[in-house]
Design a protein around this nucleic acid. Structure first.
Length: 162
DNA sequence: CCCTGATTCGC
DNA sequence: GCGAATCAGG
């Protein structure tokens, strides 16, 4: 009689709690990428995208995507020949990644402007979460530190928040 | 080459 | 409903 289906944690919330959805919308409104939102909230990228799709918060219309898409019926799913997908090569020279980005001037979403870095600061409360607020680069919504994080140029690491 | 977005399917 | 897997494009 092993019928344990979801008897994992006693206090396991259904993932997308109102708090999380609030963050999701906030980050999405801030113009962050799905990967950024996912890493900030603490979920997978697909989870964010899936939730956005369910909430119909996708930037592109489903019809447009579908028009571009030509998925007929069965696109050779995970049945027989399964592709090795993208294998990430191991990094032998792991950088210390010492890039302490100091955000001394935090600002809220409403306070965001051209003079404030739009990097979200994830907080455990999520109610008073704010943004970096540093001086961004010329024409860039982020400061020099978060510029690298916002764009994947130079560094492949995207885990440092703050 | 890698990454991002969106859809589809299984649980 | 949620998330992994998958596909397609940049």
């Amino acid at each position: 009689m092993i019928a344990n289906q979801q008897i994992l944690q006693p206090t396991l919330q259904p993932t997308w709690t109102p708090e999380r959805i609030d963050q999701l919308k906030s980050y999405f409104a801030a113009g962050l990428s799905c990967r950024d939102i996912a890493v900030n909230i603490g979920v997978s990228r697909n989870a964010v995208i899936g939730k956005l799709s369910r909430l119909n918060l996708t930037r592109t219309s489903p019809e447009e995507r579908r028009a571009r898409r030509k998925r007929s019926s069965h696109p050779a799913q995970k049945s027989t020949a399964k592709q090795p997908f993208q294998i990430r090569h191991a990094v032998y020279d792991q950088e210390p990644d010492d890039a302490p980005i100091v955000s001394a001037n935090h600002c809220s979403l409403l306070e965001l402007s051209e003079q404030h870095c739009r990097w979200p600061i994830s907080t455990p409360g999520a109610e008073d979460f704010c943004f970096c607020g540093n001086t961004p680069l010329g024409g860039m919504p982020y400061c020099s530190g978060h510029y690298r994080l916002a764009y994947q140029v130079g560094s492949r690491h995207r885990a440092a928040r703050g």
